[in-house]
Design a protein around this nucleic acid. Structure first.
Lengths: 220, 220
DNA sequence: TATCTATTCAATAATTTTGTTGAATAGTTA
DNA sequence: TAACTATTCAACAAAATTATTGAATAGATA
């Protein structure tokens, strides 16, 4: 029947997108590319895959039009095809956290390893920033900070945090943020800060979520 | 490494959701369940699958917590696990239409078969309804209409449209809507209406999209 | 032009997904 | 309780996905 052929085609085309997202490595790549462009080798390192394997997964994402490439010297940089891609990923991530208790459990179990970590959401942070009551730390790498960061955040890469920390007053609460809800840099930072006697929380979301919501960002 | 195991777990759990959505039949089922609950046999008929096959795909969706079941007499009714599921599907659908020219092409090619079909979006329809300038027809089945329909819409199942049509004045534009952008009932209705001398358009979205946006609905 | 190097490709085996078939099951109805 | 029926299950073969390996390629640099 004519209609059936049409539907098969439409849902078939759309399933190319969901198929492309239907793999843990590729979800991790999408999450990573939310930070900005990365080379194949960088992606491989961040995700613990071989370069050839990462390349093949990137081909799948590229064929589904979820990522696109630019060349920079010898390197090929992959980035998300548009902000809708990150939004769709965020919607799926939220779906997982809300309906699938297993996801929530894995995350909270892991975080317990750092002790009790309080978190604040983006809207809450905006209020605190307006009151000038907090110090905001970007605990990702300096390179990621330079690509773009939350307005008024200080760069404090997790490895350098203990030295930077000495310059911070203990009168204000410190908020740490990183790449997203599944990135643990902020948890590590909060654990260290609390150990040193600071009042500290993590931002639940990461920088890409903040930017996607249209909240103020700065580029160094 | 500890962190890698954590990430593997998190992305692995989330990929269960995207894997479950990574199949054309299962996407069609999700789209259909946006209308409300259906039995396994109904789902099989609507999607042109065998009952056993539909059942197996439904198990996959259930395991991913995307659908849930209730019993009604001898029948087991499947429905979406929550409105977030439809929203995520809508986000993916939009992603496909925006970034993947192939999806857009398949849809517009098919619609050309009915002649030039104009469509209006939900926001445009609201304006026209306020001005009382249009007649709004729900061309889905009477059963689906009774489950819920757009406020002020008349029920006009596509098979009965030609008889109902005689009672409609030609002074107003007629807007037809159905299940969603990939449902062709509204296109068929518009083609018929235009042939009979009416000014007619289709609503681009379907009833589930309208309801998900929080616009006014009525239940018979 | 020749060299170098990041990336892609091709081939392979292991694993997973898929649809069909017919039998089994659970829960309702009589 | 017995009969019925919608749904699920189990087993199978075909097809698709996946990670690994090492070779090939394209494009920049010297």
């Amino acid at each position: 029947m004519m209609k059936r052929a049409f539907k098969d085609k439409v849902y078939g085309e759309l399933s190319k997108i969901t198929k492309a997202m239907g793999n843990p490595h590729r979800l991790e790549i999408i999450d990573l590319l939310g930070q900005g462009p990365f080379s194949v080798e960088q992606i491989a390192n961040h995700t613990g895959m071989s370069v050839a394997n990462a390349s093949q997964h990137l081909q799948v994402l590229k064929n589904a039009k979820l990522v696109c490439i630019t060349r920079d010297g010898n390197f090929i940089l992959y980035s998300l095809a548009g902000e809708n891609v990150f939004n769709a990923w965020a919607a799926l991530r939220a779906l997982g956290i809300v309906y699938n208790a297993e996801v929530e459990k894995v995350v909270s179990d892991f975080r317990k390893g750092y002790g009790p970590i309080e978190s604040i959401d983006a809207e809450g942070l905006i209020v605190l920033l307006e009151k000038d009551k907090v110090i905001l730390l970007d605990v990702r790498s300096a390179e990621e900070y330079n690509r773009g960061h939350i307005h008024r955040a200080l760069s404090a890469p997790i490895e350098e945090l203990s030295s930077i920390l000495k310059t911070l007053p203990k009168s204000k609460t410190v908020i740490a943020y990183c790449r997203g809800p599944f990135c643990v840099f902020a948890d590590e930072a909060v654990a260290l800060l609390k150990k040193k006697g600071y009042k500290a929380q993590r931002l639940y979301e990461g920088f890409p979520d903040w930017a996607a919501k249209g909240y103020p960002v700065a580029i160094k």
